[in-house]
Design a protein around this nucleic acid. Structure first.
Lengths: 331, 331
DNA sequence: GGGTAGTGGGTAATCCATTACCCGACCGCT
DNA sequence: AGCGGTCGGGTAATGGATTACCCACTACCC
């Protein structure tokens, strides 16, 4: 591999000039700069990243730690982050924490070790390792879920309100026994969606009962089990609020297995407007979350914080949109 | 940030000993090693990655360059790669080339600059920048799509055969005018699926006509347009082979808009067994690709090549499985 | 002509972990 | 006692880009 010295020798200048020319510093004679660039391409010179980062004490990279690569909600966030980051020359590396505090902590360590410029993460639980980032002074932004006990920039969806509206919609449609399938306790979005569900029941002077509520991982398998449990109890629900689209898959499977028809026998609203939500029969009513914006806003906040880590922490809350389709339309 | 010297001072040893102790070298007195570890945790020492990589001339990282993070097929590959890489202490960074040769090339440059140990990529087209990897001696493996003109390790699905079988299945079901919606020309999987489709027609002594074939990006929007074109022509197809699940979404939308019922009016087989494929009405017949294995096999090959870059190039071809559901069942 | 400000560009220090090389101590053997 | 061998651990070189600092030179002024 060619180094700056090689390029310098070839161009007949010093290494300092090579560095300045290649980094577009204005204090280089245009003719020299041209010679340097020519020498660099002739030698196929690729700067040594570690050396550069070592000296600069920072890499032009932001780490994005999400809890599930296979969840379209998070990949949409990733796209939002990428588009903004690339505009200003940052690369994005995606890390999959798999909803595990330990993997999350490991990735945070790696991010610190590699001296990335900043980190965007959706914290998997309350016991996050972000304290290490704060201690080290690395810029970070939480997305989708808040970071209890740290005042950092946060970008959220008003998911409690959205859950409340979705539930209110089911009530308005005349459903009587509305249940809820949400994510694990301690995951903030899961708790918020449940809280919003209860808010709506309370506002309508309905009693909420634990019998109609189930929790599981944010995955199809868990939701499938949960739905079966709900459906086989003595007084099954006649409507369900489901906390994400992976879970919706599990629930819909359970419904088919038991021959329950969504919309007619069971009202359904689910979080996340998956591309296939309109295609199932009946089309799914959903709460569409602005995932891409979540990512792009978070990225912009992160860039601002990289530039100035003393700025006050902000909380941005984006709204979600209920899209009523046939699955919540009572005949 | 604490450095080795700080830890050394605190533990009352030299930096060499610190490094040896923390890297688990056997030539350190256990008692000293313990003291070093204690000092390191007390100081919250995190090794400086760039410095380490600079010295080692390589980072314990593999880059995975895929063409669409939002495509579940590729995220499943990512999981396969991750699981294998993590087992042996490598981190995986995911890069989204977005099917653009330019982004792909940029990520390859970054991978080289950062001195990653290896690269796994699904080449976006024939004009890839992998030559740079070869020139530099960085280990790499192609996944899902071959790399024309380079003899590298490749992990593929026998997608041509799978397309042939899927088409044969449609023929066997009695469909007469079978069409195909595939990806862009030059993308190998797209071309192969089309070729397999033609193979099946030829084997059944049917004429294939360009009128029943459309190409577009591997995305819903393009497939939607393509399907509308196919359906509105004078002699529309009575069955379709669709080259991936994102496209299937677009096609199914088009069908609803035109009131065409899958299975009854139009036979349908699509590539990729999306989680929702069973849930649409009628359930979609699919070609299930072993995406996770694709990733894990590629990762294992990459590790082998990192250990020994002179080993001969191999080609691994995995099979796909046709899952016939109602959408291809002629009444 | 001597002095000053300004500008381009070179020299060498710097970032920090790893490791080649070397040294001292201790053991066991003759 | 003396010598070779082993083992633990210290000193200092190393990797390559960036940049603080300094120097040489030109232009312009009094």
């Amino acid at each position: 591999m060619a180094t700056v010295s090689d390029v310098a020798a070839r161009a007949g200048v010093s290494t300092a000039t090579v560095s300045r020319a290649l980094n577009g510093k204005p204090t280089v004679d245009p003719e020299l700069a041209e010679r340097v660039r020519a020498a660099a391409t002739e030698l196929g010179y690729q700067p040594n990243g570690p050396a550069r980062n070592l000296r600069r004490q920072e890499a032009a990279v932001v780490a994005l730690i999400i809890s599930d690569v296979e969840n379209p909600f998070f990949t949409a966030i990733a796209r939002g982050v990428e588009d903004v980051a690339h505009e200003v020359g940052y690369s994005v590396v995606l890390c999959n924490s798999d909803e595990s505090a330990e993997k999350e902590s490991r990735y945070i360590d790696i991010a610190i070790q590699e001296r990335v410029a900043g980190v965007i993460l959706s914290p998997s639980g309350p016991a996050t390792a972000v304290a290490k980032l704060a201690a080290r002074g690395t810029a970070y932004v939480a997305v989708d879920r808040p970071l209890s006990g740290h005042d950092s920039d946060v970008v959220l969806v008003d998911t409690r309100l959205a859950a409340r509206e979705a539930t209110a919609h089911l009530i308005a449609q005349g459903y009587e026994r509305i249940g809820c399938v949400t994510g694990p306790a301690g995951v903030r979005t899961a708790d918020d969606r449940l809280a919003g569900y209860r808010d709506a029941l309370k506002a309508a002077r309905r009693r909420s009962t634990p019998k109609l509520v189930r929790r599981s991982e944010y995955k199809a398998a868990g939701a499938h089990r949960a739905a079966l449990e709900l459906l086989t109890q003595p007084e099954p629900p006649d409507a369900l609020l489901i906390a994400n689209s992976a879970m919706a898959v599990g629930v819909l499977q359970a419904l088919r297995e038991r021959g329950v028809r969504a919309g007619r026998d069971l009202g359904l609203v689910t979080f996340d407007d998956a591309p296939w939500a309109e295609l199932v029969d009946p089309p799914l009513s959903v709460v569409a979350q602005p995932a891409y914006e979540l990512g792009s806003v978070a990225a912009r906040l992160l860039l601002a914080r990289i530039a100035d880590n003393t700025r006050p922490a902000t909380t941005t809350t984006l709204g979600a949109r209920l899209i009523a389709r046939a699955s919540s339309h009572r005949p």
